[in-house]
Nucleic acid binder design. Structure first.
Lengths: 219, 219
DNA sequence: CGTTGTGAAATGATTCACAGCT
DNA sequence: AGCTGTGAATCATTTCACAACG
């Protein structure tokens, strides 16, 4: 383990954008890329790109730029996406279904190996190739199928209880789609995706007449 | 227009979290709240909460705190959520369906008034009460139904083309679910929701053994 | 040359700490 | 007393600018 100085949070958030862009360039057979090019594509400065990458190692070649293929491999190592994570979807409603049908999950190194719901009308159904199981089966299956990630697609009211169940069962991370802040007693990693917060951001930007994206520099 | 100093981007992102928390407190009949209480619930310091709110006006009452009801009203004004926005969903696949079924949209002041897709097998179907229309109808309907917001739920490959169509038709904002950066020539506001980026964030945090959320301070 | 990696400077955001109001 | 609003201080992130390298 190379002793690396603390990584800024914004850097972590940009890393996956780099990877996404690089993967599409590789498909188009692009061999190398400069920090300038990568920055332009993402609305960042060249210095920012270089500094972000430099937190993790020296991947560039002076006078040349970065080898696309090589940098993709490095980023995947950083993300831990070079290994596979087993995941469980909890909640087989609309969001749960959209998640199960999302083709990129597998590509990003996640495999959905179980689906849970507590609605008797849904239990037993097969959705996107997965049989929906009752919540009661959760603790046993997390262990049996080596589930590391819980995808929380239940209503806000039950989200905390389900999160607790997932943590007790031993998952390491939770992807939360419910519009609440979960209290996870620092037991797991959490990332949230919140439609209504996103909509409100948008409404706010529109009211103010702001253009472009709040996530970017170019404002 | 009150002359207000520039608002930090992180503040904008927290504003909707405040509103969400306040709304749930009002349901529980809580009358007032201190910056300390609100901060604790969201993992922020009291000073941060006060400073964020102070960018928009003086809503607090020394010795008392903030009146929940009053602050909700102020935040809604700030968000422009006290008016209604007409929205169109483009893409009636899994994500589009989840969006249409999401009950909070209406509550947040958005009304879905049209749904578009270019798949002949889907056109004409009624989903969540909306008849799916061909993409060709988009330009006319955006004008006719006063559509201000486009919700982009199409695959990455077609996202840019659809965004261009929405902009040409005259929308003011786009909520983008496609995993690409859209080039919008600064014509509209953009907010993105990206599942695969979220998953990668999570994978990264888990690999590093980080706990809690990257969006928060408590780290 | 062109391009990286990186200290140093500049900008931006958070926290501190306290005057002032109720 | 309890709590807000806010300048000043601290901390974090970005940008600048340039030596070093292929």
């Amino acid at each position: 383990m190379t002793s690396r100085s603390k990584i800024p949070r914004p850097t972590v958030k940009r890393l996956s954008l780099y990877l996404r862009d690089l993967e599409s360039r590789r498909e188009q057979e692009q061999q190398t890329i400069s920090s300038q090019q990568l920055g332009d594509a993402l609305g960042l400065t060249d210095a920012q790109v270089r500094k972000d990458l430099a937190y993790f190692g020296q991947f560039g070649h002076p006078g040349i730029g970065y080898h696309v293929q090589e940098l993709i491999a490095e980023l995947r190592k950083i993300f831990g996406t070079d290994r596979k994570w087993s995941a469980a979807v909890v909640g087989a409603g609309n969001i749960g279904r959209a998640v199960m049908a999302y083709p990129r999950f597998r590509h990003k190194g996640f495999e959905i190996v179980a689906v849970f719901d507590n609605n008797p009308g849904v239990i037993g159904q097969v959705i996107s190739g997965h049989r929906v199981r009752p919540m009661d089966d959760l603790p046993a299956l997390v262990g049996a199928r080596d589930i590391k990630i819980g995808i929380l697609a239940v209503p806000a009211e039950t989200a905390q209880a389900v999160a607790d169940a997932l943590i007790d069962a031993g998952v390491l991370g939770i992807l939360n789609f419910a519009p609440v802040r979960l209290d996870v007693r620092d037991a797991v990693s959490i990332t949230s995706v919140d439609f209504s917060v996103a909509l409100e951001q948008l409404a706010f930007q529109v009211s103010l007449g702001l253009t472009g994206s709040l996530d970017e520099q170019e404002g």
